[in-house]
Computed example of a mutant assay.
Amino acid sequence: MRVGVPIFLFLAAAGFHTALTASLESAEKEDTFVGLEQLSDLQKRDQEEFEAAQMSEAVQDENTEEENDTQEEDMTDRDGNVEADQHESESDEDVDGMRQKREHLEANVEEADETTNLAEVE
């Protein structure tokens, strides 16, 4: 019996140690799992916020791009109108120039006719 008591105490202490170690490891795993779960929730929220920010930025970029396109179209229309006005002005100038040339030529022809008529009369 004297030998059995220390062996019994040794085995009880070893069993208690094993049980305590297993319990601590289990609690650690739970904490790790809960920590990972919380981390996972945080990551999910961060990912959602990131995606929302990207969507918002994309919408802003799209709106800015549409505004730029509209402004470019307006500028193109204005440039087209200015070019049309210039072309119209040039056309008007061409018409005026042609009209002056025609009048000048008609005047020359009339002078030539008069000169021819005077030459024939003499």
Rank of each mutant, 00 (worst) to 15 (best):
M1H: 08
R2T: 01
R2H: 03
R2Q: 07
G4L: 11
V5K: 08
P6H: 03
P6G: 07
P6V: 08
F8Q: 13
F8W: 09
L9A: 07
L9M: 10
L9Q: 12
F10I: 11
F10Q: 03
A12T: 07
A14C: 03
A14E: 12
A14N: 09
G15H: 05
G15E: 10
H17T: 10
L20R: 12
T21R: 03
T21F: 13
A22L: 11
A22Q: 05
S23L: 11
S23Y: 12
L24I: 06
L24N: 04
E25L: 04
A27C: 03
K29M: 10
E30L: 01
E30N: 08
D31R: 07
T32R: 02
T32Q: 04
V34M: 03
G35H: 11
L36H: 02
L36C: 01
E37S: 09
Q38E: 10
L39C: 03
L39Y: 04
L39D: 07
L39E: 09
S40I: 14
D41V: 06
L42S: 06
L42K: 05
Q43W: 13
Q43S: 13
K44M: 03
D46V: 05
D46T: 02
Q47N: 03
E48C: 01
E49I: 09
F50P: 00
E51R: 01
E51F: 02
E51H: 01
A52P: 00
M55V: 01
M55W: 01
M55K: 01
S56F: 00
S56M: 08
E57K: 07
E57I: 11
A58Q: 04
D61A: 11
D61V: 11
E62G: 12
E62D: 12
E62M: 06
N63F: 13
N63D: 14
T64S: 06
E66H: 04
E66P: 02
E67A: 14
N68P: 02
N68Y: 05
N68G: 06
T70I: 15
Q71I: 12
Q71S: 10
Q71T: 14
E73L: 15
M75S: 14
T76R: 14
D77F: 05
D79C: 09
D79A: 13
E83K: 09
E83P: 01
E83Q: 12
A84I: 11
A84K: 15
A84P: 03
D85C: 12
Q86Y: 15
Q86D: 15
H87E: 11
H87C: 09
S89H: 09
S91E: 10
D92Y: 01
D92C: 07
D92V: 06
E93V: 14
D94A: 15
D94P: 10
G97V: 11
G97M: 15
G97R: 10
G97K: 07
M98L: 15
M98E: 15
M98P: 02
Q100N: 06
Q100L: 15
K101M: 14
K101H: 13
K101I: 14
R102M: 06
E103R: 13
E103T: 15
L105V: 06
L105A: 12
L105I: 07
E106P: 15
E106H: 06
A107E: 15
N108R: 04
V109W: 14
D113N: 09
D113L: 04
D113V: 00
T115L: 09
T115E: 09
T116A: 06
T116V: 02
L118I: 02
A119V: 08
A119W: 01
A119Q: 11
A119E: 08
A119L: 09
V121F: 00
V121L: 01
E122W: 00
E122L: 01
